[in-house]
Structure formats: C-alpha cells, structure tokens
Design a protein around this nucleic acid. Structure first.
Length: 418
RNA sequence: GUGGGUGUAGCUCAGUCGGUAGAGCACCAGGUUGUGGCCCUGGUUGUCGAGGGUUCAAUCCCCUUCACUCACCCCA
C-alpha cells in the first residue's frame, strides 16, 4: 500500500476547496465590515498555555492534545483551539497599548486526538473571532450579530442560536452548590458517568444526553435564577440588544461549556443536520482569561466556527469551480504555437484561457472544452492560418463566428471581458 | 478509551451455495479525412484491504490484523 494521510486528517481536493475558499473569503469580508483584523499565530505553542487556559481537568487537556517534547526538551502542543494562542500573542505584543479595544479574528487548523466521526476530525479548521477590552453588553450583541450575519451570507439556515449566562466567579459557586445538592438527592437516577462527575463538574450533567439524566434534571435549578445582580443585568442587556438588532435567539439554561475560562454570556449555533456533532459555532465571554495568562485585567468575548461542519451543511450545494472563458483548439504544430502565444497573452490579461497539451484530435479537444465548461472555443488550424480568420464558437448555443487573426488577443479581450 | 458497520476497477456497487471477477458512471478511441453536449461501437483499469489457517483449489469459510465509517464520549 502507498502512504495514506494520517487518520482523522483530510485532504481538501479540487471540487471541494472552492467551498472552503468561499467560506473563508466571506469571513474576511463580513468580519472586516465589523472592524475585525486578522491575526495569524503558530500552529504550535508551549503546552502550558493550553493547560493553564483551557483547564487542567478538561478532556481536551487531559487526553486530546498532540503534545511532544522538541529536541531541546520543551513540551510543545499542536493548538487544540484558537483563543489561547490569540491571547498569548495579544499579551506578548502588548496590543492593548495600541488600542483599548482589540477586535481580532483568525482561521486555520486545530488539532485534537479524538476518535474521528462525522463532523469531528483530528485536524479540523476553525474560523474564530475575539474582542478584548469591552465589558458592555453591546459587544456581546455585536459579536452575535456578526456571527448571525456571517451565516446569512454563507446561506446556511437550519441553525438555532442558543444563548445562556454562566454567571461569574461571584455567583457561579452558589449555583454550583445548589446544583450539587439537587443532583445528590437524585443520584440513583443518573447515568454512571454523571454519578462520577457531578461533584467535579456538575454543570456537565445538564448537558448529558442520557434519557435518565434528562428526566432527572428536568426541574433542576437553573443558572439564570442564581445570577448575581451584575450578571443578571448584563444578561438582560444582551437580550435587549439582540432584540433591538432583530437577531433571533433562544435561551437555553442547560447549555454549558467544555472549556473552563467561560463566564457570563455563552452561546452556540446548533443544527439538527449533523448527527451528534450538532454545534457549528460556539463561544462566550472569558473575562478573567487575559489576566490569568499574565496580561492586563481585560474582559474578552469570542467564538469559533467549525469549518468542516459548515462544509458538511453546504452539502451538495457546493461552490462551482471557475471555468475557462476560452478554450483554444489548435490543429497542427504551427497553429499550436500560435495558440500557445495567444493563450499566454490572454492569461496575462486575466482571462481564464486553456488549450490542449497532449496533441489530441479536434474532436477530443472539443470534448475537453465541453467538459471544462469553457464559454467559448477558438478553433485555429491550417485553414485559419491561411485565411487569416479563426473560428470562435459559443459553447452554450453552438453559434460560430469568424475573428481576424490580426489583433486577435485584443479582440478576444474585448469580447470576453466586456 | 468503548461499541456497531463496511473493505471487490478512479467512483458507486453487484457477484461467485469455494473453481482467481462484473455492471453503471468516469476515462480513451472510433462512428464525422477539421467541430463538444445526445446516441451507437469498441477499449483500458483490479496484488477482490493485509497476514495466516482449512482445502486439490479461497475474493468467498475460519482466525488475526489494518484501514475506513457511524455512534458513545467529547466538542467547533
């Protein structure tokens, strides 16, 4: 057997890559309109960055990271998510000194050692955005509005925006305590996993998919009822601004986060079309993160979109590859040389032009022009060289006209670009 | 990490109750001595995932293994 790609890491081939390019180009455009700048960070970071930010006891850090020692003995990790590297870069370059508010976005591969399945891969791609320096609920709403606008622009529907508030270090401990008390009284109804984790990570139980757990937590205390005054007001304002902007959303008080740094506003864009990997985008507020990584005490909020999941949702409605505007069918060596020069001139001028390189028959060249969906085919043979006029065929209606060989490049440029 | 499913041509798959394989699509050529799409004719392509066992004989039965895939888990 020849060498295959690494498990869970996929090639993106012609035919599919056009969809990726569209999704990325639209992100540049939409995020740019909202005042975000792109930031690019390395694929590898010191391991400590992730263990400190994501949380030592999360699954990501405990068992899903690609971690290794480099030849100098430093423990490095392929980034499993994008927020921590952006925070690291932000702090390292003191970006808060340039502007009190930073709006950044990124896109690129992330790595997690998980068992691959539909919508979940070991190398996957995220498009993410982060805002640093604003606590006001307007920015929460603006980030959500931008995310919503992006999904409108890429024409993906069948997603629902779910919003929740997780509280802050002041109010969450109280909620935690009351939730643990509630779960303790119903331990025997919980699944084994939840029985094990209700002490360490009680919020996780709210997200459990087992029928027993779902029933057991049906009237569990909700986070929202336990918010402190500040958090409650913040959450109310977020909702008010979302309504002002006509952003449709639902409140899901059972939504939790897999990463430890989230506080207050959290959200997910979920769909029922991707099996169990139902989140196509997720994010939230992380007000303590920058400071905990050694930076200034700045609030932050952001999200990440799973690009593979978008591509899956686009499904059959793929973005079509660009097709040649002109195919030049040449017969004989002399005509092929003329065709080559002509094609090159057109390409320099930005016209998508193509010709045959394999010495095929005219019939075969026409077939290829058709297969490539060329808009026009120029036929150039001995007769045309002798008469000084080439045949230009419109491939959609089959009509054919004569064009002068003298100044042909300019004539074609006018026809094809005008 | 756990469980299920599937591995046969480039793709989607059929098949042999054990006698070393086929269809459609794709690709190539011809039907038109210089004109695509539709149609017709012909052609190319396989270590039947890998290793071992049973057998005169294995792509088929048995064992092992690998890969892919879906789900659990986790998450974008």
């Amino acid at each position: 057997m020849s060498i295959a790609a690494v498990k869970g890491m996929n090639d993106i081939l012609p035919g599919e890559v056009e969809t990726w390019q569209f999704l990325e180009a639209t992100a540049h455009e939409v995020f740019g309109a909202y005042g975000f700048s792109e930031i690019r960070t390395p694929a590898v970071e010191k391991t400590e960055l992730f263990s400190r930010s994501i949380g030592e006891t999360t699954d990501i850090v405990e068992k899903e990271m690609y971690t290794f020692d480099d030849k100098g003995g430093t423990s490095l990790t392929l980034r499993p998510e994008g927020t921590a590297p952006v925070m690291r870069s932000f702090i390292q370059h003191r970006l808060h000194n340039l502007d009190p508010v930073s709006k950044l976005y990124y896109m690129g591969p992330m790595f997690r050692y998980e068992r691959p399945q539909k919508g979940r891969y070991r190398q996957f791609h995220q498009i993410g955005a982060e805002v640093l320096g604003v606590e006001d609920a307007k920015i929460d709403a603006q980030v959500l509005a931008m995310l919503y606008q992006y999904f409108c622009r890429i024409d993906i529907e069948a997603v629902s925006l779910q919003v929740n508030s997780l509280g802050c270090p002041v109010c969450r401990p109280n909620y935690r305590k009351s939730l643990i008390g509630y779960l303790e009284a119903r331990l025997e109804k919980l699944c084994p996993d939840c029985r094990r984790r209700y002490q360490n990570n009680p919020l996780r139980v709210l997200d459990c998919k087992s029928a027993g757990c779902k029933a057991a937590i049906a009237d569990a205390p909700s986070v929202v009822e336990h918010l402190c005054a500040d958090c409650d007001q913040h959450f109310e304002q977020v909702q008010r601004y979302l309504r002002t902007l006509d952003i449709p959303f639902v409140i899901n008080v059972r939504m939790v986060r897999g990463l430890d740094y989230y506080v207050r506003t959290t959200f997910e864009l979920v769909t029922d079309r991707l099996g169990s990997q139902n989140a196509v985008a997720a994010g939230g507020r992380y007000d303590g993160l920058v400071e905990s990584l050694g930076g200034p005490p700045l609030p932050g909020i952001g999200f990440a979109i799973g690009v593979e999941r978008l591509v899956l949702m686009k499904g059959e409605q793929r973005v079509a590859p660009a097709t040649p505007q002109l195919f030049i069918a040449a017969l004989g060596d002399e005509a092929a040389d003329r065709a080559f020069v002509l094609m090159s001139a057109l390409q320099r001028a930005g016209v998508r032009a193509e010709m045959d390189y394999l010495g095929k028959s005219l019939k075969a060249q026409m077939r290829r022009a058709n297969k490539l969906h060329a808009a026009y085919t120029l036929i150039l043979g001995e007769e045309e060289l002798a008469s000084g006029k080439a045949q230009l065929k419109n491939m959609s209606d089959g009509s054919q006209s004569q064009v002068d060989l003298v100044g042909l490049a300019d004539i074609l440029l006018q026809r094809l670009q005008g």
